[in-house]
Amino acid sequence: MTMSAQSVPSGSPLGGSLGGGKLPVRSFPSPAAKRRLTSLFWGLVSVGLFAAIWELLWYVEVANPLLLPPPHMFLQDIPGTLKFFDRSNKVGHMATGGGATALMATAGWTMFRVFTGLALGLVLGTAVGALIHYIKTFRNLALGTVLLLAPISPVAWLPVAIFVFGIGDVPAIFLVFITVFFAIVLSTGAQIASVPKNYLHVARIMGATERQTFWRVILPAILPSLFMTVRLNLLGAWMVVLVAETVGVGSGLGQITNMARATFNAKLVFFNMAIIGALGFLSDWALREFQRKTLWWVAPGEGASR
């Protein structure tokens, strides 16, 4: 009883988004709304089909429910599954409370690490990239090292992160930071060099100082494509944050993965994977919305909303 009562709200995001999808019906001629509804529809069909095939494989006893429990099984006992989540962010702290708030806290810490790392990578990467572009001495001193370090997989930095920062949030944030930092550093110079000459001419004619030109013309001109670099590296950031949490942090969704593996809890594995998938999707959406709101001059081809 309680289970089915629980599983109704768990289905409600779908119902909710369908209900939300009805709102644009009032302005239904809008082709954008129509397009969005269509893609939502096919998205649901696609996920539904995937789940149905999985269920079918379980039904005909091809998929072992202990190893590959189908969606209805790992989504069934949500309160039970949530017991494994913990509200605190203490390292090595075993589950105390559980429940939805614990799930949100766990997911929240992971998201916090992802976004903090990305933000630091964007800001510091742009700063270092600009210094490399403008200051010859700095370029000579730094560029070689940057080129040497850039191709190293962030995962390879994990031991370094733990040696230097110990156990906790910092190594996870550091790994996410590494994921975007070098890419941003290297693209900043190229982006600065490709700012339309006429923008710079306008600035000079209007009497802008070099500093004003940088902050008011060059930076806004390059930010959209740097932000695209961040978006393209979001997947990588999610990957390393889970690895870091598995090994060096002891909290967050990666730690749940690790615990589920160690305790052979397949339901928890798949439940956690579903959460990670949903959050990955949501965080891409969040970055896209952020881009749309704050960097609205992005060229349409560059992944803007229009």
Binding site: N198, H201, G207, A208, Q212
Partner: peptide
């Protein structure tokens, strides 16, 4: 100086573009 392309800053509104030099 006016170019073949208007070269307005896409991150500013039209009014802010016109006022760019004034704000400098």
């Amino acid at each position: 100086l006016i170019f073949q392309e208007a070269s307005l800053f896409p991150w500013l509104t039209i009014a802010d573009n016109v006022a760019f030099g004034l704000s400098i």
